[in-house]
Design a protein around this nucleic acid. Structure first.
Lengths: 247, 247
DNA sequence: CGCACCGGTCGGTGGGGACCGAACCGTTCC
DNA sequence: GGAACGGTTCGGTCCCCACCGACCGGTGCG
């Protein structure tokens, strides 16, 4: 019924992401949480008025959803598909690769490399390990495209994750998402999100600062057992925030 | 190892698609073929010098690959993943929906709606029908994500499409691609491309003008048999190019 | 060998948009 | 009620970039 998408419409959408400030907003919102306009303005280093303008355009363009609460304006990515779009673009964009300058930054970076949220699923070394373990255990199979196996359904039910509701939405059940730090795929899609949520609910993982996620003391053996891997493989990076280190 | 992609890199990539002319180039190149600089300039309605500038930027940005032959500069999308990116963006962009003005345009649009290439796989009514028939026949299964079944491997081998080479690359074997005209998914990925190529090789389909594809007289019963569908379901739109029609 | 053609390069021009400061509005808390 | 705060609107400034015309280099054909 509709004609082909024309260049102007495509360009208009791309233009929303073609500004460093707006792109930075979207990358920040990739943590899956709702931010206030002021937080985003500070994080991007622009005046509140500028940020307000940008947010209005992003909302009107359908990339962001907003929610007003009192004097605050909360915004979040409109949709998992927006997160996927931003991920795909970011994955193709060249990495500036500026090494961290301070010890604190290096430590924070190590935490992020270990485990973090990627919109609403797990990423980092832990995310890739989860992905690999699910394949090894036969929960997932990629003989003909990544798919959940019948064995996998039982495994998930055991874990307390009902599968049927996940099939209901339009969102793909399982999907590869290229990990920026590991350069290997981790698990996204409705199932990736459900597992990430379940681990938090079970207390196996907990949110750290920003997008960082850490494995709790109770979670380490529990997760290792569920995935049938050696608990040692789940070891977080050695903590360096006690005592000074030299350059 | 690398740090997070920063807003500037993402914005720079998006900026390549944030211009109507460049976006139009990419949409034109979605037909999977290589175009000359002049063809693209004429199709977009800009001066050759302007087009040359744009192409240089798109090539430097990694979205397009070029190939010089004599005095011609051929360009094509760099990669199937670029095609996917453009598709995803175009699918989210609002459709301008300008109805066709002339009879010739209406006829051309009907041909495109029936069957066309989407980068390197089949789209349009025929593409969606193929997708549905493969699911119905058990070649594909989406119980836990879209996947090729063991039955499907045999079916493909029968058809003369070896599956193993398709697994080799980094490209996903099967993937959904939202059809712009049908608003329903058709089959993309390495398998989608291989089937489209195989149908052309077998003479079941043939290229029409532009991105259009038509089913040959020999192809119609053959394809119907292979898919186990009624040949009537494969009927193309009634041809209207004989005799005038009134508005 | 010249002519036609495709394409790239180089200034110049014009428009769009990113940014800020200042003034303003509504909420929250004392 | 008043003060502090988050957010928005409005003008104004400045820079970037899309576009063209003109000129130049390489290719292919007669």
């Amino acid at each position: 019924m509709t004609t082909r998408t024309d260049g102007h419409a495509l360009a208009g959408l791309a233009a929303l992401l073609a500004d460093p400030t707006r792109a930075g907003f979207c990358l920040a919102l990739l943590d899956g949480r709702a931010w206030t306009a002021g937080e985003l303005a500070r994080s991007a280093g622009v005046a509140p008025s500028t940020a307000s303008d940008h947010l209005t355009r992003l909302v009107r363009g359908g990339l962001l959803a907003e929610e007003r609460q009192g004097r605050h304006r909360y915004v979040r990515l409109a949709d998992p598909s927006v997160a996927q779009l931003v991920e795909d673009l970011a994955g193709r964009a060249p990495a500036p690769a500026a090494p961290p300058r301070t010890l604190r930054a290096a430590s924070a970076q190590a935490s992020l490399a270990y485990a973090r949220t990627c919109y609403d699923h797990l990423a980092g070394r832990l995310g890739v390990l989860l992905h690999d373990a699910l394949l090894a255990r036969g929960v997932l199979d990629r003989a003909g495209g990544l798919a959940l196996t019948p064995t996998g359904v039982a495994w998930l039910t055991d874990l307390g994750v009902p599968v049927e509701p996940l099939r209901a939405g339009r969102r793909p059940l399982v999907r590869d998402c290229l990990d920026w730090t590991e350069r290997r795929p981790h698990l996204a899609g409705a199932l990736g999100a459900a597992l990430c949520r379940r681990f938090l609910d079970l207390g196996w993982t907990a949110r750290g600062t920003g997008r960082a996620v850490r494995l709790t003391p109770a979670g380490r053996p529990a997760l290792a057992a569920a995935l049938a891997v050696d608990p040692a493989d789940l070891a977080p990076p050695a903590s360096r925030d006690t005592g000074p280190a030299r350059a």
